[in-house]
Design a protein around this nucleic acid. Sequence first.
RNA 1: GCGGGUAUCGUCUAACGGUUAAGACAUCGGUUUGUGGUACCGAGAAUUAGGGUUCGAUUCCCUGUACUCGCCCCA
Length: 486
Amino acid sequence: MTQAKVKILSKQVVKKMDKKSEISKSAKDAIVSKKNVKLAGKKSPSKVKAQVEEEIMLQPPRGMRDLLPGDQPYWSQLRRVLARISLEYGFGRIDTPTVEYSNLFIRSIGKGTDIVDKEMYAFTTKGGDRVALRPELTAGLGRAYIQHGMNVLSKPVKLFSTGPVYRYDRPQEGRYREHFQANFDAFGEQDPILDAQLIQLAHRVVTSIGIKNIQFQVNSIGCPKCRKEYQNLLVAYFDSKKQKLCLNCKKRLETNPLRILDCKEDKCIQVSALAPQSVDHLCIECRVHFKSLLEYLDELDLPYIINPSLVRGLSYYTKTVFEIWSGDEEGKKHSLGGGGRYDHLIEQIGGEHTPAIGFGLGMDRLVQEMKRVHAKMYIEPKPRVFLAQLGDMAKKKSLNVFAELQKNGILTAESFGRGSLKSQLRVADRLGVEITLIIGQKEALDETVIVKDMVSGTQETVNHERLIIAVKKILKSNVVVSHCEE
RNA sequence: GCGGGUAUCGUCUAACGGUUAAGACAUCGGUUUGUGGUACCGAGAAUUAGGGUUCGAUUCCCUGUACUCGCCCCA
């Protein structure tokens, strides 16, 4: 942002604030309440906070949240696992923009889906482009695949990506308007062994972060050819039972009849139970594909069930679809991710025919599960040395001493803003460091440092040049703390 | 988008319609000027916002907001 812009902006803010405070002042005067008497002479910070909150919003927009330092060990652990496994399975990392043209999503995910019709963060830019915050990762990956001519690479082209995705949904536990997904996609291979391999990969990720009690649900929704025939059958069936369906499903009969199978209304479940199932109406090719996938899965010994009503909300899927669920002690199920084959997506958005398969994992939900099962997590290395300073001259020296320690690989904590040695030692003690280095007026003049062993309480004064060696010597004699807790 | 529940210091919890809105934990400072723990002392810190009922509202009613649960949908 240019300086001029900043100036204009801050002017506007000031103006706005003046206006607001005027309003609130007059409103308060009008009331002449006892509360004001109470407030007289005492500036209530809460009122100030409320006012600021109103003006600049001390909260992110709905459905957005902060991932605080306390959460980060879980996220680090998850990212490490993802990075390792993507490498093992030969997936190359790719990052695509958060914003794409709206049409990309409309063409790929499909009109009539909730994601596109109701949940997209779509807007028009100043330049008049119709764009949207990505509601999922696959569309952007497909676009990048075509744009960069990845079809010339040796197949399958395996891509791994993580990042935020956006859906204008009603927030709930484990559901946010901005959430993070990890996506694995393989382009250019139609063999069902890929389907099985991706499910295996998903299983490895989920179990590697310590989540147990996983179940895969798989289904085949066929190719455009057999699905069309099946869909006709289904529509005919539901049409005959139309009066027994819920209002929503009556509409779905026109727009997206497959989704009726997914409806949670009792009466619809009853009707769906007797409906023709997609697995019974697959064409030969799709049936063979599904059958061999199941054979691979049996071979892998993965916990899976066939769920004939599994449909998924994105219309680009063909043949294989699957979801990953975890269950807790109370029998509640949590959806962790899902995916499937999308053999026609690439040509739908302008590429050559490219069979492909992929899946997404909800990282927020994985973290949630990690917390629930108390999964082991990555422990950041803790500083084992504290640097304390006393007096102006020492304070000036301390920055350089600090930098020197870090350069030598000695992770050091400090609290330079504090004045008294007492309060600094208190911090050092709380941090549980093994050594505290003290520089006072005298030491600053003599070019020395006091090295205090926090365990024994003994201390010695050493010359500047010998500082690093002396510190390392004490650290080495102490028991080395493991960085990763098992 | 629809329905239910909840809302007090940073966190967790108190307060028959009348209290200076209390406590614990956490934070910061101090207990003689250059040494940690404990203890002790002190400080800052809240009624989600706006209306209404009432002599008087944290408490009762309405509206907004946020969170939360279920639905819808999804990861």
